[in-house]
Amino acid sequence: MNKRIKLNNKEKGVLLLEGIGTFLLFQLINVILVITSNVFFGNNQRTNFFRLIQTDSSRAGFWQVWFFFCLVLVLEIFISFHVVMKTFRQFEVEKVERELAKIADGDLNQQLHLEVNPRLQGIVNSINSLISNTNNHIAEQRRSEKSKDELITNVSHDIRTPLTSIIGYLGLIESKNYEDLDQILKYTHVAYKKSLEMQNLVNDLFEYTNVQHANSTLSMTKFDMAQMLDQLSADFELEANKRGMEIVVNTSPEKILMTGDTDKLGRVFNNLIMNAFKYGDGATHLWLEAKQTPQEVVVRVANNGKPIPKESLDHLFDRFYRVEDSRSKETGGTGLGLAIAQSMVKMHGGQISVESNNDRTAFIIHFPTIKQKNSEE
């Protein structure tokens, strides 16, 4: 909340002297003018000031003289007040300058919480807005730097683990520390698997940084969401059968026309389906559902496997986040799949969320259709 500027005793004294001094100066000028007029027109009945004000009120010119006298007095008071206010505004400017000097020294944590005259208030508000925007920009830069540091740390950690295994097993072969060809094949097989882990991490990292880039664009085409889900069901049917799962597709209506980047949306659903395969322990069904309303298209990818712990729900879309480290190591997940899916959904103007209970774990995507219609027009 802004507060009025409070003057110290010295400043109050300056204002008082300014007002009284200016008013007395005007009175001195008045006296000089009256004396001067009497000197030059001493015997003139019409111009002698003292005779006019001492004359009977019925006499012509009496009221005119007093009216003029009062008008001059009011004008003098007004000018004296204006001089005082001008000095007060100068004090306001000096106060603002002192506060700005503190900010200029690097103290950007404070703003100018001052209530000043309307003309100067606009400048104060603009300065506060500039300070606020600067602080937001600095905070965003710090978050970005912290995010980059975390990204480098996580990538280094995730690359170092398989790389250590690769170097170790290839080192055994290089030093001829093996018994027969079967052992060589075993070492190379492990090195190959670890190389694939590194390749997956690099590919996911590249894709994540690409969708996060400001210049990342979408190749928009018109497609049928229901048909896309049917195609996904067919693509993953074999993998689902291996895991003892059945894929069920439900759409309403049967044909849902949308506009989007089918390659990126395909990657979103691939990530969600693979996520269900890897972490949906005990699941027997995988549901791919889509429903169209006048405002949006809602797509759900759900399974009836083991629920996600409540404490993990808010972090699933964080980069490199894994619900359980042991399961992550077994499945080979990079922790970037859901972050990539979220970024791609946001590029389409949509939102993605997750719900998990003992019955189902569902990833829910909302795609706005009104915006898409406007873009088509």
Rank of each mutant, 00 (worst) to 15 (best):
N154D: 05
F50I: 11
K10P: 00
G13D: 07
S58Q: 12
K255R: 12
V298D: 02
E289V: 07
L112M: 06
H366E: 08
K222A: 03
M344E: 13
N38S: 05
D314R: 12
K310C: 03
D325S: 09
E11S: 11
E115A: 11
Q342P: 01
H82D: 14
H285M: 06
R59V: 13
N133V: 01
T36A: 13
N270S: 15
K3W: 00
A276S: 15
L316I: 14
A191C: 02
N38R: 01
D158K: 10
Y178W: 10
N304W: 07
E115S: 13
I29P: 02
F206E: 12
Q183D: 05
Q231S: 14
H113F: 06
N200M: 07
V297M: 03
F41T: 07
V74N: 08
L112Y: 03
Q372E: 12
Q342D: 12
Q90A: 09
K291W: 00
I370H: 06
S175H: 10
R160S: 08
L33C: 09
S156A: 09
S37V: 09
D107Y: 04
S80G: 15
E150V: 07
G280P: 06
K148S: 13
T259Q: 14
F367P: 00
V72Y: 11
N117D: 14
D230E: 14
T293S: 14
S129Y: 02
L238D: 12
I365W: 02
S165V: 08
V268Q: 01
A214R: 08
Y208D: 04
R143S: 12
G305A: 08
V34H: 05
F69M: 07
F23Y: 14
T161V: 09
H366M: 08
K86C: 14
A290G: 02
M220P: 03
T334H: 05
K264D: 09
F81Y: 15
Q212E: 13
H113G: 07
V354A: 05
R267K: 15
V298L: 11
V202L: 11
T361P: 04
I273V: 15
V323W: 04
N43M: 02
N30H: 07
K222M: 02
E99K: 14
S156E: 09
E145L: 11
K264C: 04
Q54E: 05
E207C: 04
F78K: 12
V248M: 03
F68M: 12
Q54P: 00
M245N: 09
A139R: 13
D359H: 08
T209V: 10
D107F: 02
F277Y: 12
T36M: 09
Q111K: 10
K86N: 15
G106W: 02
E207Y: 10
F223C: 00
L28M: 09
M1K: 06
Q27D: 07
A341H: 01
L16D: 10
V345G: 01
N125G: 01
L114N: 03
L25V: 08
S37R: 11
T262Q: 10
A290S: 09
T361V: 06
F88G: 13
N210W: 06
N241T: 13
L75C: 10
G171K: 05
V74Q: 05
H137S: 08
V31Q: 06
N357E: 03
N270E: 15
D107M: 02
N203K: 09
D235N: 15
